[in-house]
């Protein structure tokens, strides 16, 4: 059941260039959806449209079968965590968290237990009387989260909430956010440009580029089966080459090497991609078969857990990761095998 629905949202600041182009996105209740993409792709704009901080030029925004497109920010009852946290420096942690409740004219007797509860859930119980300046980055992050959650919002919106934290804290906080989100069962939209962060936390991911959603799927599906070249490149596919269709699941490269794939598309010309990790290296002299392309090592780089080779082949340069037990030196000839289930067509 769709809970949040963005229908044909168009946003343009100058009337000529569209920041968002007829964007569609449906989110189910209780789901944590990430908007992933490079800077300038429109992910933050999408979040701000949802929050009501930007009014779309066209399109509809529906939550729980109510059209909220023209409802102002302060009447939407969504919790939002900002990249800068945007805590109120003149208020204590408790006052920051209670800000939204106070505006709802809540009584002290109902307000205080709510504040106390959320401070406990977010691990801030001891810090209620401190001011934001007296807190560490991670603690401020929790206050921002507590402040957004205490109003019992219909939606939780997170705008790159972890980008100001150091690497270790970032991992810790994303687990924390996931835990709290699960516990409260709150529908959430998370904006990030970090794919690892996004994959670890999300139920579904919308990969955005140039104001449109390129793919909206589970993290696993996006990781294993990117649908477009942009998505593939963004999530770490490095090798791209052209193929021509010969028959059902059978393709040839420009040089006539035969490749079998597990996917089948109708287009006669398309692009194939594969991760450096998924290519097998076979020594020279192995019998040439389908899904094999010969090449010559150009550069070898040590990555710690493996070697990475840049291999010159007749379909172009291919990056391959090989085990560190066998090191091929530059100039050496070898055969690259592309397992058919790992070869992705985009």
């Amino acid at each position: 059941m769709t809970y949040v629905d963005l229908k044909d949202i168009r946003v343009s600041y100058d009337g000529k260039n569209n920041i968002l182009k007829d964007l569609n996105l449906s989110i189910e209740k209780g789901e944590l959806v990430s908007l992933l993409g490079p800077s300038g792709c429109g992910k933050t704009t999408t979040l701000r449209v949802i929050a009501g901080l930007i009014e779309p030029n066209d399109g509809d925004f529906v939550v729980d079968n109510k059209n909220l497109t023209r409802v102002p920010v302060h009447k939407r009852n969504f919790g939002m965590v900002f990249q800068s946290y945007a805590l109120f420096p003149h208020l204590t942690v408790k006052e920051n968290v209670g800000f939204g409740l106070k505006l709802r004219k809540e009584d002290k007797t109902t307000m205080n237990p709510k504040i106390q509860d959320i401070l406990e859930v977010t691990g801030l119980a001891e810090l209620g009387d401190r001011y934001p300046k007296q807190l560490s980055g991670g603690q401020r992050q929790r206050v921002a989260l507590a402040r957004a959650l205490v109003i019992e919002p219909k939606l939780l919106l997170l705008d790159e909430p972890l980008s100001n934290l150091d690497a270790k804290l970032r991992v810790q906080m994303r687990i924390e956010i996931k835990r709290i989100q699960r516990k409260l069962g709150i529908t959430s939209v998370f904006v990030t440009h970090d794919q690892e962060e996004c994959f670890s936390i999300s139920d579904r991911v919308a990969v955005m580029n140039n104001g449109i959603i390129e793919q909206f799927d589970t993290p696993e599906e996006i990781y294993n089966r990117p649908k477009t070249e942009f998505v593939a490149r963004f999530i770490g596919f490095e090798n791209f080459f052209n193929l021509t269709k010969q028959g059902e699941k059978t393709y040839t490269t420009s040089e006539g090497h035969m490749l079998k794939t597990s996917q089948s598309w109708d287009d006669t010309k398309l692009v194939a991609t594969i991760r450096p990790d998924d290519i097998n290296i076979l020594p020279k002299g192995t019998e040439q078969d389908t899904n094999m392309i010969p090449g010559k090592v150009v550069v070898r780089t040590f990555l710690g857990k493996s070697y990475q080779y840049e291999v010159e082949t007749n379909v172009g340069k291919i990056l391959v990761n090989g085990p560190k037990e066998t090191a091929y030196s530059s100039g050496e000839e070898l055969l690259l095998q592309f397992p058919e289930e790992k070869l992705i067509l985009v």
């Binding site: 102002p72 939407r76 939002m80 800068s84 805590l87």
Partner: peptide, 27 residues
């Protein structure tokens, strides 16, 4: 004054005037 603070106040239920009185003015 970080404009995001005003926006944060608005997402928490403050209209423009309240956000001004409770956030901008004290700061």
């Amino acid at each position: 004054i970080d404009l995001e603070m005003v926006e944060a106040a608005e997402t928490l239920g403050a209209n423009r005037l309240t956000a001004f009185m409770k956030v901008v003015l004290p700061l």
